[in-house]
Simulated assay, not measured.
Amino acid sequence: MTLLTKLCLATFCSATILIVTILPAEYGIDATGLGKKLGLLALSKSSNTTSFKHELSFNIGNYDPKAERINESVQGLIHLEEVPFQSQVIDIEIEDLGEVEYKFIMPSDTSFVYSWEVLNSRGEGVYYDFHGHPSSADAKHYPDKFEMAYARGEGTSQNGSFTSPFSGYHGFYFMNIEEGPIIVRLVISGYWQDHQEMYRAIEGKVIKNVKF
C-alpha cells in the first residue's frame, strides 16, 4: 500500500466518523440518517437545552473614579488598611532564666504574618504565650483584667498569620527554658501602629514593665 493510498484511506475514515457520529451528536446534523438510528440526535438536543441558573453577585457599590477611597469591595478578597505595610526583623535577647514580652499596637481587624525562631537553641527553647489585651483607655469596655489568648506552648519556632480581634496590644511573651542566654528572632510583616518591648524580668525580678 502506497503512502498516498494510506493518506486517502485515513481521510475517508475521518470524514465518515465526522458525518456519521460527531455532526449528529454535537450539532444535530444527520445527513445519513444513522444518527437517529444510533440515538446520537438525542445527545445534541440534551446539550443544547442545558441552562445555568446560578448568577454571580458582588457587593460592589457604584464605581467613582475620583474617589480617594473605595469603601466597598468584593467581600473576602481585599481589606483596606489605614496604617502602612511594614516589615521588621527583631532579635530579642533573653537572659538565662529570663522573660520578655513584646507587643504590637494594632487597630481591630488588621493583620500580620510572622515567624519566630530561637537562633542558638541547645534544648527546649522557650515557653511562649501569644495573646492580646486592650489599652488602658479601652479597658473599661472589657471585663476586669481582660486578655485573649491565641497560642501557647513550648518550642523553638513558630510560623503563622494573625488578625486582631480588637484594638489594643497584641504580641508574644517568651520565657527562656534553656540553660544560658538565647536570642529569639522575630520576622514580621503586616500592619501595626507601633511596637516595643513591654516587659522583661530575670529570675523573677522585673527589669522593665511598660504601662499601657
Rank of each mutant, 00 (worst) to 15 (best):
A139W: 01
I92S: 00
F85K: 13
Y63G: 07
E99C: 12
L119G: 04
T50H: 07
D129F: 13
L4K: 15
D64L: 11
S73L: 06
N71F: 08
A151D: 15
H54P: 09
I94T: 08
E26S: 14
T49C: 04
E26G: 08
M106T: 08
A42K: 13
I207S: 05
G33V: 05
R200N: 00
D64C: 12
S121N: 13
F58M: 13
Y142D: 06
Y191E: 01
G33Q: 03
A67P: 00
M106Y: 03
E147L: 15
S57L: 08
D144Q: 11
N62M: 06
M1K: 10
M1S: 09
S57I: 04
I183R: 06
T11V: 10
Y150N: 10
D109T: 04
A25V: 02
L97F: 15
W192G: 05
K205Q: 15
F12Q: 08
E68D: 11
K145N: 14
S167H: 06
S157Y: 12
K103P: 01
N209P: 08
E179I: 12
G171H: 03
A139G: 08
K145L: 14
W192V: 02
I92A: 01
H170I: 02
D91Y: 00
E147D: 15
L40G: 00
Y114K: 02
A201T: 00
D194Y: 15
Y63R: 07
S44P: 13
M1P: 12
H141I: 06
Y150T: 13
G98S: 07
S108W: 11
S164A: 14
L80N: 10
G168M: 11
H170R: 03
V83H: 03
I19W: 09
F174E: 01
Q196P: 06
G153M: 01
M1C: 06
Y142I: 06
D144C: 09
T49P: 02
M175C: 05
G171E: 00
H79D: 14
S111D: 10
I207K: 05
A139D: 07
